[in-house]
Structures are given as C-alpha cells and as structure tokens.
C-alpha cells in the first residue's frame, strides 16, 4: 500500500509535483527554524503580542510568563527545524506534514487576516481571510494526503512501515 493512487504513481508529472511541493515547504520550514536558532535575540513574543481574535488571551498569557514564553520559543525553533528537515529529506514526512500543518494553522489563528483586525506590523502582501499561512497549511494537508516520502525520500529505506 503506497498511500498514493496508482494514477499518480504512473504520472511522473503529478508525482514529482508533489515531491517538489514537499521539498520546498520543507526548505521553508527548515530555514525558518534554523534562522531562529542562530539568532540569540529572536523571540516569539513580538508575534504573540500582536495576536488578535480567538487566541489573543492565550498569547498574552504566554508572553507574560517567562517560562511559557521560553517553551514557546523552543517549540517554534526546534519544531520548525525538525519538521523542515523531515519534509525535505522525506523521513517520517507523513506525520510531520500534519505537525507542520498544525504550526501554520496556529500562526494563522493567532493573527488571522479578518476584516476589522488591525495589526501593528504591516504584512508583506494584501490578504483578506486567505493568507500564505492558510495556503501553506492546505499544501501540507495535500502532502499528508498524498505521501511521497516512501517513493522519493529516506522513508524508502523503511519498506515495512507501510502506513508511512
């Protein structure tokens, strides 16, 4: 059981399209994570402080508690790095696609581009309801649903872990 429809397996264009998507998102996650790891001044606080809508209260709680903030920083730095490496290398990619989806969905929900919500930092594009976080979350959903790492990726070396 490959987890991929045989029509996709036969269609190189579709297969490589999915692999490319996985690798590119992996690259993006990996650099987001590593760049935070190597910057001693990075903190999730600035992002959390600008949070609006449902999770703004939770964001405030995290920011006001040094322990929670440190945990949040570490989870983000290492989480993004590991998910990124996993997607890029194709190792346990199916699970990490879900985790990565969780990350970007949280980023979306902590600061959604809804009408009436104003953010202090100007965005790098123009969005209403749909932004790049939401799109990346959906792309990860696709990666989860159409796993490719057992065909192109390190998961190929674990043929018995069929569910992956």
């Amino acid at each position: 059981m490959s987890g991929l429809d045989s029509s996709i397996l036969k269609n190189k264009c579709q297969l490589y399209g999915l692999v490319t998507l996985r690798v590119l998102i992996g690259w993006h996650f990996l650099y987001e994570g590593v760049s935070k790891l190597i910057n001693p001044y990075w903190s999730s606080a600035a992002y959390l402080l600008d949070s609006k809508w449902l999770f703004s209260g939770l964001a405030e709680t995290i920011v006001s508690d040094p322990t929670l903030l440190t945990i949040s920083d570490y989870v983000n730095m290492w989480g993004l790095t590991l998910v990124g490496a996993s997607l890029l290398l194709g190792l346990f990619s199916r699970y990490t696609a879900l985790i990565g989806m969780g990350f970007v969905l949280l980023y979306y929900l902590f600061a959604p581009p809804f009408l009436g919500l104003e953010y202090s930092k100007p965005g790098e594009g123009s969005y209403i309801i749909v932004n790049k976080n939401l799109i990346e979350a959906c792309a990860l959903w696709v990666i989860y649903s159409f796993p490719t790492s057992h065909i192109i990726g390190l998961d190929r070396f674990f043929p018995n872990r069929k569910s992956n």
């Binding site: 990996l30 650099y31 490496a85 890029l88 290398l89 194709g90 192109i152 990726g153 070396f157």
Partner: peptide, 20 residues
C-alpha cells in the same frame, strides 16, 4: 534505483546546508 530514490533529496538538503 531504490537507493537513488531514497537519497534523491539529499542533494537538496546539501544545497540548503551550503547556503546556510
């Protein structure tokens, strides 16, 4: 062929590391 496909994204990872 299996080995090549299993390691196919390693060069991309290498490219990433070089850039980093």
């Amino acid at each position: 062929r299996d080995i090549l496909k299993g390691l196919a994204t390693i060069p991309v990872f290498g490219l990433f590391l070089v850039n980093l």
